[in-house]
Amino acid sequence: MNKAGFENSRTDPFLFYCQSNKNCLYVALYVDDGLVVGSNKTDIEEFMEMLKFHTTRGSLNNFLHMKIQQNEEGSIAINQEDCTMEILKRFGMAEANGVSTPIGCEESDVKEKFTAEVPYREAMYLSTVSHPDIAFAVKKAARAMEDPTVQDWNRVKRIFRYLKNMMSCGIIYKNNTVCLKLYSDAYYAGDKDTRRSTTGVVATLSHGAVS
Score class of each variant (00 low, 15 high):
residue 136 F to E: 10
residue 149 T to D: 02
residue 47 F to R: 08
residue 21 N to M: 08
residue 54 H to C: 03
residue 143 R to M: 09
residue 42 T to Y: 09
residue 33 D to I: 01
residue 196 R to S: 00
residue 204 T to H: 05
residue 75 S to F: 03
residue 159 I to M: 08
residue 112 E to Q: 07
residue 177 T to I: 06
residue 108 S to C: 11
residue 16 F to A: 04
residue 186 A to F: 05
residue 97 N to C: 01
residue 193 D to K: 07
residue 165 N to K: 11
residue 24 C to T: 10
residue 207 H to Y: 09
residue 39 S to E: 08
residue 58 G to V: 11
residue 209 A to C: 11
residue 14 F to V: 08
residue 122 E to H: 06
residue 153 W to Q: 07
residue 77 A to V: 08
residue 9 S to T: 10
residue 86 E to V: 11
residue 185 D to R: 13
residue 2 N to W: 02
residue 126 L to C: 02
residue 78 I to E: 10
residue 61 N to S: 07
residue 157 K to R: 10
residue 80 Q to S: 11
residue 55 T to R: 10
residue 78 I to A: 08
residue 136 F to I: 10
residue 209 A to R: 05
residue 175 N to L: 01
residue 37 V to Y: 00
residue 132 P to Q: 10
residue 30 Y to H: 13
residue 154 N to L: 02
residue 174 K to G: 10
residue 13 P to Y: 08
residue 208 G to M: 02
residue 107 E to N: 08
residue 133 D to G: 06
residue 1 M to I: 11
residue 177 T to L: 04
residue 206 S to M: 07
residue 52 K to I: 07
residue 19 Q to G: 00
residue 153 W to H: 13
residue 166 M to T: 15
residue 32 D to M: 03
residue 123 A to H: 07
residue 206 S to E: 04
residue 110 V to G: 03
residue 133 D to W: 06
residue 197 S to K: 04
residue 191 D to K: 09
residue 58 G to D: 05
residue 186 A to M: 02
residue 144 A to D: 05
residue 56 T to I: 05
residue 33 D to N: 14
residue 70 Q to S: 09
residue 155 R to T: 01
residue 50 M to V: 08
residue 122 E to R: 05
residue 71 N to S: 11
residue 87 I to K: 04
residue 146 E to V: 10
residue 199 T to E: 00
residue 156 V to Y: 05
residue 129 V to Q: 07
residue 179 C to H: 15
residue 138 V to G: 07
residue 70 Q to G: 11
residue 92 G to P: 06
residue 86 E to L: 11
residue 71 N to E: 13
residue 28 A to Q: 14
residue 41 K to T: 15
residue 14 F to I: 10
residue 86 E to I: 06
residue 183 Y to T: 04
residue 200 G to E: 05
residue 64 L to H: 08
residue 48 M to W: 01
residue 92 G to N: 00
residue 82 D to M: 12
residue 93 M to G: 04
residue 190 G to E: 00
residue 90 R to S: 06
residue 26 Y to Q: 00
residue 80 Q to F: 11
residue 26 Y to N: 08
residue 207 H to E: 15
residue 45 E to C: 01
residue 42 T to W: 03
residue 115 T to S: 12
residue 118 V to M: 06
residue 182 L to W: 09
residue 14 F to W: 06
residue 35 L to R: 08
residue 62 N to T: 15
residue 131 H to D: 05
residue 161 R to M: 05
residue 139 K to M: 08
residue 132 P to R: 02
residue 44 I to W: 12
residue 82 D to C: 10
residue 2 N to A: 14
residue 6 F to H: 01
residue 165 N to T: 13
residue 187 Y to Q: 14
residue 135 A to H: 04
residue 164 K to A: 14
residue 23 N to L: 01
residue 18 C to W: 01
residue 147 D to G: 04
residue 152 D to V: 06
residue 40 N to F: 12
residue 55 T to M: 15
residue 161 R to P: 00
residue 64 L to S: 09
residue 130 S to D: 02
residue 101 T to A: 12
residue 53 F to I: 13
residue 197 S to F: 00
residue 82 D to L: 13
residue 79 N to S: 12
residue 158 R to S: 02
residue 40 N to I: 11
residue 129 V to Y: 03
residue 88 L to P: 06
residue 85 M to F: 13
residue 31 V to G: 03
residue 131 H to I: 06
residue 104 G to F: 00
residue 142 A to G: 08
residue 165 N to C: 03
residue 195 R to H: 15
residue 182 L to F: 11
residue 48 M to Q: 08
residue 113 K to T: 14
residue 24 C to Q: 10
residue 202 V to A: 09
